[in-house]
Design a binder for these strands. Structure first.
Lengths: 330, 330
DNA sequence: GTGAAAGCGCTAACAC
DNA sequence: GTGTTAGCGCTTTCAC
């Protein structure tokens, strides 16, 4: 690997000039520029990003900290983040926290150690305390969730969770469902907000809630749903708040040989490959995941340019997609 | 952020001693060690990994280059890679190539520029040429695929694709299917190998192949399947070779209101959330994706320790999971 | 416009 | 065992 010194020698200029040319700095004669570029070409020179980063104190990596890449929501967001980041010359370091605050703190520290330019992040509820405790020196964009006020500006991008859950619940009620159980992702603010929307809708109709916080995993969702279905007064519908819990509920329903929607209705969040392949197809809130990832990255890159710009909150719309899983009760 | 110099001053030792303590080098008196650790504690010091990497010429990042993280196979592999890497103190930089050789070459260069310790990689068929052309200076582990011989040792981990496709095809034939169409992922060696297994099985029974290479995307799979189903002599079963094509085939089958397996059988690769949730459930080869990712990372880290160890090829078993989608023809 | 030189934070000879 | 020092490859003042 050729270094900048070798390029400088080959071109008969100083390393400073090479550096200027490669960073597209002004004040370089075009003759010099050509000579440098030719040497670069000949030697197959590529700047060492590590050295550049050490010297310039800014790096071309961003961190992506999500709870689990296997959650289709985060899979799609991650893909969008990677696409957008690379378009702008950034690479993406990715981590999974499993909603574990210890892992989360560890990863945040690691991000600082790696000198990343910024982080896109789906925080647990403990995160803001951690963030305030240790001196974060890079900007953060929060996706999917809310975060307690921090000592520094944080941008947020997500859908209106209260409203989305409200609409789903309203829809179920309008279609004649009365005992609607809610399965909410534990550990995140999103689960809480969706619960709020759910309870608001039920209250408006004088129905009583049946809410459960569940770890965002298929088996956990299945177990919770199974327990409810086997109870003395089983629900006539499930509101699930992410695609893993939705799959879990469906597993439980299938295990117990119940029919959707005749015996039990089902609605949820996040359009996945399978939400239209199962029969009946599932009624759900389709979040614009790719756009969320793209916008998150754009917000982050903007803040990297201008660290002191006021903090922004982007709330997108979730689209209600109707399927057979919540058809009117006969 | 405190630097090693400040720690050294606070502890009243040299930076060399601090460095020794932090890298767990021998030959440090325990008294020194304690003094250093205390200063580290007090200052909240954490080593700058960028500086360490520049100086020591080895980094604590590995690259992960896959065709598309949204393919459930790669989602699971990626999660395993990340888990394993972080256990060993490595972080993961991830990229999607979309099977595009230009993007692939770009990312490989970027990996070198970032001075990664190694790369886990699902190459396109052009990759080995690129790899030989530019002086790779980090080890590579290939997942999911084969790769043409390179000028340097490469480890490979995948399942036996010929055998897996052979078994699936045999299974269909045994169950009475006769016109079996194959949808194979284009651009990768894996599609080719699975086609070989498929054709071998058909030949053994004097049946003729009906093979199509298709881009690994749901819509492309749906389109190909739809065209076949609408043709003059439609297939009585589909062998699909990844979960995206499998979903695509199912979409086409549903669109045309055909029943599985009565009117058309369906088998594929990769157990996904939905492959057991659709009815009938899908017969498929379940690849040990998490283990593939874990092993890939272990192979890579071993080779990082010992770059000259002979190249290894790990061939795991795919498990045939029976579902209703390939039930015996009546 | 261009070059000389300092130094980002760390590790690893080498000297003692 | 510990300290001194050179230098990884780059950017960026500061002269000229």
């Amino acid at each position: 690997m050729a270094s900048i010194k070798e390029v400088a020698e080959a071109a008969g200029v100083s390393t400073a000039t090479v550096s200027r040319v490669l960073s597209n700095k002004p004040y370089v004669r075009s003759e010099m520029r050509d000579r440098v570029m030719q040497a670069v070409e000949e030697l197959g020179y590529r700047p060492n990003l590590i050295a550049r980063s050490l010297r310039s104190q800014r790096s071309s990596s961003i961190g992506l900290i999500v709870s689990d890449i296997r959650n289709p929501y985060f899979t799609s967001v991650s893909r969008a983040v990677e696409d957008t980041a690379y378009e702008q010359g950034y690479s993406v370091i990715f981590c999974n926290t499993d909603e574990n605050p210890d892992k989360e703190a560890l990863y945040l520290h690691l991000m600082r150690d790696q000198n990343v330019a910024g982080v896109i992040f789906s925080p647990t509820r403990q995160a803001s305390a951690d963030l305030n405790a240790f001196n974060i020196d890079f900007p953060i964009v929060v996706v999917d969730r809310s975060i307690e006020p921090c000592d520094f500006p944080v941008d947020v991008i997500r859908i209106d969770n209260v409203d989305a859950a409200y609409r789903l619940t309203e829809h179920l009620i309008a279609n004649g469902y009365r005992r609607i159980a809610g399965l909410f992702g534990e550990a995140s603010t999103t689960g809480r907000e969706r619960r709020t929307g759910y309870e608001k809708a039920l209250q408006a109709h004088n129905l009583s809630p049946l809410a459960n916080y569940v770890p965002p995993r298929i088996e956990a969702g299945a177990e919770a749903a199974r327990a409810l279905l086997k109870s003395d007064s089983p629900p006539d519908a499930f509101l699930t708040t992410n695609s893993l819990l939705m799959a879990g509920a469906l597993v439980a329903i299938r295990d117990l040989d119940l029919r959707v929607p005749d015996q039990v209705g089902l609605v949820g969040f996040d359009k996945t490959t399978w939400s239209t392949l199962v029969q009946p197809s599932i009624t759900l809130i389709d979040q614009p995941t790719y756009q969320i990832g793209r916008t998150a990255t754009e917000l982050l890159l903007e803040r990297i340019q201008d660290p002191d710009c006021p903090s922004r909150e982007v709330i997108l719309d979730g689209k209600l997609v109707l399927g057979g899983s919540s058809a009117p009760r006969s």
